[in-house]
Simulated scan of single mutants.
Amino acid sequence: MDTFSLTPELLLILSAVAFLAGFIDSIAGGGGLITVPALLTAGVPPHMVLGTNKLSATFGSAIASFAYIRQKLFSPSLWWPNLLATAIGAGIGAVIAHFLSASFLEKFLPVIVFACGIYFLFSKTPDKKMPDHVVIKRGRQWPQGLTLGVYDGLVGPGTGAFWMISTLVMYPVDLLRASGVARTMNFVSNGVALVVFISYGQVAWSLGFCMGCALMIGSYLGANSAIKGGSKLIKPIFICVVMAITIRLVWKNWLGGG
């Protein structure tokens, strides 16, 4: 049940934010770094922020994942250990999130968002060509999937970008295929975590569905843009938006601002 005031104007603004987040997330990851701070700033309770964000993110990650699979940029048979480990980790993380206090989340989430924003500001994503014969080591997938699955279920922001970067470092894949892995694993962890948040009644349904539809459109356009071109123009905009919203959250939750 929605436990906060949701005006038509606020719904329109958050839907526009979700569209932007979906577009960016499907290309470079990190859409949650935009939607989570926006939901917190709008006054949504912290636990419901996580559940509502999972609902909307599931829409976007589903459509983006489908786009990459359709273009044969992701093969489930090569990545099944990661799919399973991610699902397990996301369930564990979402359960842990339920037992964290709202006051802790109000202070913890801005720190995570800020840290991720700083990381992306100074990080360089390697771009390498994919060899003709790829060997994906399955032993590496279990710790990767469990770790990022727990993080996505517990907090979430930045998971897609973490997937891309860790996949590029750990496996002989190129940027597009790493993005395909990230989007598909995001879909799995979002879906599993969403089930847990629903069971605890921590989803604002009307807001989540509206943001989800907007995020889905943004993800579709972004995924196709990524497949055709890349994300060089997206990252600077992404960093600026994240930092601006993070400063607002720190001012409100840490410094006592209005």
Rank of each mutant, 00 (worst) to 15 (best):
M1H: 05
D2K: 14
L6T: 10
E9M: 06
L11M: 14
I13Q: 02
I13G: 01
L14F: 02
L14C: 02
L14D: 01
L14G: 01
V17G: 02
F19V: 13
S26W: 10
G29D: 09
V36W: 00
A38D: 02
L40N: 13
T41V: 14
A42W: 00
A42Y: 01
G43W: 00
M48A: 08
L50G: 02
K54W: 05
K54C: 08
F59H: 11
S61M: 11
I63G: 04
S65V: 05
F66D: 02
F66R: 14
A67Q: 09
L73F: 05
P76S: 12
N82H: 05
L84Q: 08
A85H: 03
V95Y: 10
A97R: 12
L100M: 12
S101V: 07
S103K: 13
L105C: 12
L105E: 09
E106F: 09
K107V: 08
F108D: 06
P110E: 12
V113P: 03
F114H: 10
F114L: 15
A115R: 06
G117W: 05
G117R: 07
K128N: 02
P131S: 04
P131A: 04
V134D: 01
R138N: 05
R138I: 03
Q141F: 00
Q144T: 09
G145I: 07
G145E: 09
Y151Q: 08
Y151M: 07
Y151I: 12
V155P: 05
G156R: 06
T159I: 12
T159R: 08
T159P: 00
G160W: 09
G160H: 11
M170R: 03
P172S: 15
L175N: 03
L176G: 02
R177F: 03
A178K: 02
A178C: 06
S179C: 06
S179Y: 04
G180E: 07
T184W: 02
M185E: 14
N186R: 08
N186T: 11
F187A: 08
G191V: 09
L194K: 10
V195L: 09
S199A: 12
V203Q: 01
W205Y: 15
L207W: 04
G208M: 09
A214M: 10
L215V: 04
L215H: 02
M216K: 10
S219H: 07
Y220E: 03
A223W: 04
A223P: 01
S225N: 13
A226N: 04
I234Q: 06
F238R: 14
V242D: 01
V242Y: 00
M243H: 10
M243C: 12
A244P: 00
L249H: 05
L249P: 02
V250W: 11
V250M: 15
W251Y: 11
W251I: 13
N253H: 13
L255F: 10
